[in-house]
Write a protein that binds this DNA or RNA. Sequence first.
DNA 1: CAGTGGTCTAGACCACATG
DNA 2: ATGTGGTCTAGACCACTGT
Lengths: 244, 244
Amino acid sequence: MARIEARNNALGFRPLYRQARDILVSRINDGTWQAGQAIPSEMEIAADLGISPGTARKALDEMEAENLVVRHQGRGTFVARHDDARIIFQFFRLTPDTGEREFPSSKFVGIDVRPASPDAAKILKLRSGSRVLQLERVRSLSGKAAIVETITLPHALFPAAEKLDLPNNLYELYRAKFGVTIARSTEKLKAVAAKRREAKHLGVAIGTPLLAIDRTAYSLDGRPTEWRVSLCRTDTFHYLSDLK
Amino acid sequence: MARIEARNNALGFRPLYRQARDILVSRINDGTWQAGQAIPSEMEIAADLGISPGTARKALDEMEAENLVVRHQGRGTFVARHDDARIIFQFFRLTPDTGEREFPSSKFVGIDVRPASPDAAKILKLRSGSRVLQLERVRSLSGKAAIVETITLPHALFPAAEKLDLPNNLYELYRAKFGVTIARSTEKLKAVAAKRREAKHLGVAIGTPLLAIDRTAYSLDGRPTEWRVSLCRTDTFHYLSDLK
DNA sequence: CAGTGGTCTAGACCACATG
DNA sequence: ATGTGGTCTAGACCACTGT
């Protein structure tokens, strides 16, 4: 169907399996294959793209390593969903000191559309002054307010989102309603003192040390798509980081 | 040389390439292949183990993903060194807010051998009361004191280490002098208020929010080998975490 | 049983580094 | 020119899931 050139020696050599990966990713990206659905078998993909099964398999190996697909022996290969537990915990690292990892609940305390601040414009690569959607929420773990969070999104990518009933799992919303899949993110962590606003929301004294997480999240096409600043109390929680 | 059984169907099936990986890892672990050295070519390994080159390659793929070896097209495969920049930054995530990542300098301020605290014994899986080596140091980035660090090691694994001249890069020391290779680690992060001791070392006011990093590091054989608590000022630095 | 992904093999050729 | 790792192919068989 979509034959790939094997050789492109001049200055840029892209392996066949990576070209194949890009084609398969674009089919997820453009909605041809929806989250949770099975994609064609390795043999079919190989035939479609005019490559050998081993090469198609290597493309899928990469996509599995990137958490874009999930494979089940004997069943097939499926587009990853953001509500699979392991995908959620890919991004959510705050954990109770005792007990199991847990998905937080959310209460939105602010939703509005405004011109992008210089910081927001820079991080999201927007023209300064273009409109952004700003969400504020308080998240709880084990029934205890743990996180005060400000989320900034390009309004052009999420039109009229401010009129929706916002769910707990935003990344699943981005995908389902706006066709935006968050693939990876970068977080910068600092320790800061609680100011009046967050102290009130979290029920701690002003000046209490909080963990500030400054996250930029990137969609499948590699563009920065969400800016999120989270202030977390860490008296009974911690941020878990595995270095491999 | 060391033939592997292909089939072991009864209740535990271990792929050939993983059995091969384990054999290769043990050769790094026992010092047969030293850090920085080239290991035999894929063809030689395949012949040695009585497997096909593709299977040997897959074993090496895994080891490369685990940062145990580094491959260079046309040159060969080499045992990873902890002084390779990318291996250092695998574990050291504190970064100046402006500018490039940088390796910190160290000044040791305390070295002694003592009975393990209950916490230390639990984390390092030691009998309570067995002896541990405890190191304290202050680390600087861009010439500015940034981290106060307490490192706890099983004394039995690092005999007479307290008499050595301790270098900046401890993981390279562990490997070179004691044959212990640190392969991965887990970090728990919290925001805490500076107490008198760390405030003095870092030149900040008591009560300043600091980032506390509680790291347990595991050696090649999977056993907890080092416990490290780092208190970091994050006014001009941040902890970088990539979520993929 | 058929169909899927997972493992393993065997060999050809390409890209890169070194002598 | 040689040897290394990297890519690609083609096919066999194994393990698992559903019908």
